[in-house]
Design a protein around this nucleic acid. Structure first.
Lengths: 200, 200, 200, 200
DNA sequence: TATGAATGAGTTTTCATTCAT
DNA sequence: GATGAATGAAAACTCATTCAT
């Protein structure tokens, strides 16, 4: 609880986030993490019992932050269209701001049941957040809809990660594109402007 | 190119596909591949220079098969809606038939530029195949559209991979869901029935 | 020498005795010793320079106690037979009372010259104590005799250590068995009842 | 089964016997064993799955050899006294010839149930071999007698191990000393010359 | 004195790759 | 071509010891 121990804990998570993210789980050595965090190898093990536990902690912190920020942003919006826009922006800008840490989500250790379980839990949470938005807007099959939207966004983020010339403006446009494509597609059972001032 | 050497080449690829796919790159040992292929460890190296090269070859064969089959199926269809349907079915059933080989695409070695390049190439090819369909149907931003569709499908496939109770019928429904959602979303710049006899 | 420091010194020795004894030298961590002693890890090093020194101190205290108690018990006896009996009882009951600490003597660190030297010194002392008894009884080769007796007892103790059902009565019988076997074997050059009131 | 593989297997056992014996289990590195055997580190693991397994194999080979040689020597003797003499000589000369490998029996890894079980098995076998000799000579409590004899010999061997000036003749004398001490001690229930020509 | 966070040397084991047969 | 015994680099993790507080 002391600020010192917290500092180190955070430093390790930050270092691991960077290295796991850019290099992947197997390619990252615990000694690299230690070095990047500016501490000794043994110290990492005072805070995290194993490399897998560290990876899980990094993933958890990242995912929790993702969902919390999304919730906050969604609360500031009234209308369905705005909310879907916010989701798209959040998804794309999250990666935009983390170009370095790309690989985290697809270069994980295999055969770690805890990690698999956590990722499933995260996806469920994310999906439910989207589902909630969709349900407020009315419409059937909200879960499939939510998954479709998330998948769309996840693919559209790829260029952001791999194309160095991708600008913030490009990301904005892409988010708007995704939101309108989805809203149009979902239109017959959604009421896009419900809750918007415009709609009143 | 002799039939004998070809036999072994194929046996190795098959073995590697099974093992990399179910266990992941790092979890699979070259000796396992050799054993599964029914040959000696050293022999693998007569056909593939390294583990990474083998992984790349497996990936390549898999992706090429994916695209070839897709092309064949697309040729049998006239209308845009049917073609988009075929794409969805192909994407979902490809994974449906390969539940065992789940991990191949997201448990690959990092930092292998050749692999990264090939995957980018594959995605480009896949996208262009979809783009071609969309362009025939008319409409703007075909590349973003294609990516959105592919992303949607890629997320919707997840339950297939992880939910053992997922049936063929479920997969069909899901493919149709994706196709209609996308078509509706894309409607203002696409002409869904163009090319269909019905549309004439 | 203050009572406080003495308390901790003793607490550490007690803790180390328990842990080294039941787990062995290599299996026991200094942090375990500290915890068992109810102090901090660093504190152990205020009292003992190293793990090996601690082990040596534990061994020393144990061996000294062994010899001191033996001397006391021997003083209470007059006759040779009684003295040999006391030696057997002491040897066997010492282990009987310390079943938990079995491993201390045969799970020690190697290559520690000081420890090797001390163990040799202890054996010499123990042997001389037995020799003294034998010499009083007359007879040749007292050192070989003493070693034989000690060896006999040391093997006979084994069941005590490893057989949980071994009772105090069993230990008594075994001690008597050893004493008579030895006395009979040594009879031609020993005068078994010399010094006993009965013998006068 | 090929002589080559057998050569290496033996070379590793020999190297391990020397190193474990002189340095102890924990003090011996697998890389030392490999070097001493003149092979690469990894090769050791082709023949023995782990350090513990190697230690067990070394112990087993040694103990089996001990018992086999003892049996052979005992078969060549008729009388009880001669047989007990042979046991003493075997016990002492076994160590005499293996001064370098002393520590094997008392510097073993802890907490290895397989090893503990094997050592118990070995002791039982050894004891039964002695018991068989004693029973042929008649007499009660043969197991305690056997243990006493073995213990005696085990202690008398110590000087052989640690005293570099100990000669073969010394070892002989010591063996004879042990045998006569034991025979005299056991005399009332044993018939020392039974089976000897002299006794007829 | 007492603490316990921090250190980093040290060892087992794995496995891709080689190469003599 | 085919084999599989041999290699040795590489990395996770432990734990005795130190030292700033």
């Amino acid at each position: 609880m002391s600020s010192v121990s917290n500092d180190k804990h955070t430093a390790i998570l930050d270092a691991a986030y960077t290295l796991f993210g850019s290099g992947g789980f197997y390619e990252t050595k615990m000694s690299d993490v230690a070095e990047q965090a500016g501490i000794a190898k043994g110290t990492v093990y005072l805070y995290f019992k194993s490399k897998e536990e560290l990876f899980l902690a990094v993933t958890r912190r990242d995912c929790e932050g993702y969902l919390e920020q999304l919730e906050t942003k969604l609360k500031a919006q009234r209308g369905l269209a705005d909310k879907l826009s916010v989701i798209a922006e959040h998804h794309l800008f999250y990666y935009y701001e983390r170009k370095q840490h790309t690989k985290l989500f697809f270069r994980a250790p295999n055969n770690n049941p805890e990690l698999v379980a956590y990722m499933a839990y995260f996806m469920e949470q994310y999906m439910q957040a989207v589902v909630k938005v969709l349900v407020e807007g009315g419409g059937s099959e909200p879960e499939l809809m939510a998954q479709s939207y998330i998948g769309m966004l996840d693919r559209l983020k790829m260029d952001i990660l791999f194309d160095p010339s991708f600008s913030e403006t490009d990301a904005h446009k892409r988010a708007q594109f995704a939101a309108s494509l989805f809203i149009r597609g979902a239109m017959d059972n959604l009421h896009p402007f419900q809750g918007d001032k415009l709609a009143e």
